[in-house]
Structures are given as C-alpha cells and as structure tokens.
Amino acid sequence: MALGSYTGKGARPVRNAPTRVLLHAIAILLAAAYLVPLAVVLLNSVRSAEEIAQTSMIGWPLAWAWGNYATAWSDFCIAQTCTGIQPYMLNSALVTVPATILSTLLGAVAGYAISLWRFPGHAWIFGLVTLGVFLPEQMRLIPWTIVLRDVGLSNTLTGLVAIHTIQGLSFTTLFCRNYYLSIPQDLIKAAKIDGAGFFRIFARIVLPLSPPILIVSTIWQFTGIWNEFLYGVTFTTGTQQPITAALIALTAAVADAPQYGVQSAAVVLAALPTLLVYLFGGRYFVRGLTAGAVK
C-alpha cells in the first residue's frame, strides 16, 4: 500500500448542496482552531508585557511592539547570560546542519549496501539498525554520557553532532533501504559484470535515482534534530545548549517576572526553521513521517 500518498480523489459519497456547504464550514472552523496557537503566539510576539498582563495572552496588539524580536534575539537574559537566543540558535544550527548531512549521506550508503550490494548478514544488521528507531532515548542516556566523557566530547556541539548522526542512521538507513528496494537487482548485476565496483555503482546508478529519498531524509532529520530536547538538556549546559533547552531555561529564568511578549518572540524564532522547512517541503515531510512510522 502506498502510504503517504493521497493522490486520487475520494469516494465523494456526500453530494447534496446544503450538506456540502456545512462540510466546508466545519473544515474551515477546524482549520481555524488548529491555527489558534500559532496565531496567539505570533500576535503576542508583538505585544508588550504590560498589555498582555492587562488583558490576556489572547488578543490583538494595540501597539505593535516589534522590539520584542530584537530583545529576544540579542538582549534577553537566560540564566545570567544576557545574549538573547542568538547563540543558542547558532548552536542548534551548528548541530543540526552537519548531523543532518552526515546521517543522510551515510544512511544512503548503508541503505544501498543493504538493499543492493547484499553482503552476508545484511538482513541481521538491518534488523539491528532499525531497532534504533524504537529504542527509547532513556536507555541511551548514561551510556552516551560515559562515551562522550571518555572521548572528551562532554558539553560540546561536536558530541551532539556525533550522537545525532549515529542515532539518525537508524532512520536514514531505513528510508533509503526501503526506497532502493525498487531499483532492479539486474541493473546492479549488469554493472558488476561491466566491472563497476561498489563506489562507482553508487555514484553512477544509485545516487542519480536518489534525490526524492534524500530530500525526505534531509527534511526528516533536520526537523527531528532541531526539535530535539532531551539530549540537548542532558549533554550540554550553559551557552552550549541548543535552542530547545534554552527555551525551557528561559521560561524557568523569568518565572518571577514573565516577559510574555519577548518569550513569544523567542518561541516564534525557535519554531521558524522547521516551520519554513515544512512550508516548502511539506510533501516530503509527510512521506518521511509515514515511512518512518509505519515500516
């Protein structure tokens, strides 16, 4: 079954006009409801703290406080460090971009090796790799802590890149292996007879067929790593933390005197990269979601 594709139209069992108008009205109302949290946080990001305190979190800005964004970005204090969220956003980018690229490329090679090269034991190793999709992070927290300490990567962004690359391989290998199964084995055999080796077959035959799955994998990894919280908060501290961990620290830091306008701006900025990816690559995002979840 081609999960993740909704091409083609539905059965369209309901045909009479009033019912159809009603259905459209329900659909629009529901969509509006799903947009409420986004709308609320967007509007709050340009309202002043006083205005929010006087009314509520939900409301139209009376005076547009665009300064919230500048404050959130570069002035705001998180745990005595008054740099705004800027360094934490940079941390997230410095972890997410390399880990996404590495895990996707290595996953493509691994998926190719398993599905088309078929070395002895490929089924076993594939099974073990995919178990990584299910294994809770809590089972890996202490081992990672010890491994990071022993290789001297405690509290470093490089450590997070290594973790996300190795763990991400579970997903990317799975994506690519399933995708490459549709490449005819005969094509590989013919290339082998012509004298092409592992790398040449990958570069000349497999890679040119790969863009769709590489996009799926990139989007999936980017979103997952950018949004990750537990490892960020466990393995890094202070100014080494990614943005998700910094957001929680920020909320805790201002618990006594909340700055909801500025906090909202910070939330918007933190969510922006993955929302943009979703906006432009939504189609691929859905494919990754369904493939990663169902297989």
Partner: peptide
C-alpha cells in the same frame, strides 16, 4: 494546516499551550 503542528517541537507546543 492540520499537519503543521507536527513540524513544531514538543517544547514549543508545550510552552504555547501552557500559556493558553
């Protein structure tokens, strides 16, 4: 629209809903 929340982190979701 129905799917966009899936692109947002749980941290962001939790924070925004804690306000609402």
């Amino acid at each position: 629209v129905f799917l966009y929340p899936m692109a947002v982190s749980f941290v962001v979701t939790g924070t925004v809903w804690s306000w609402l």
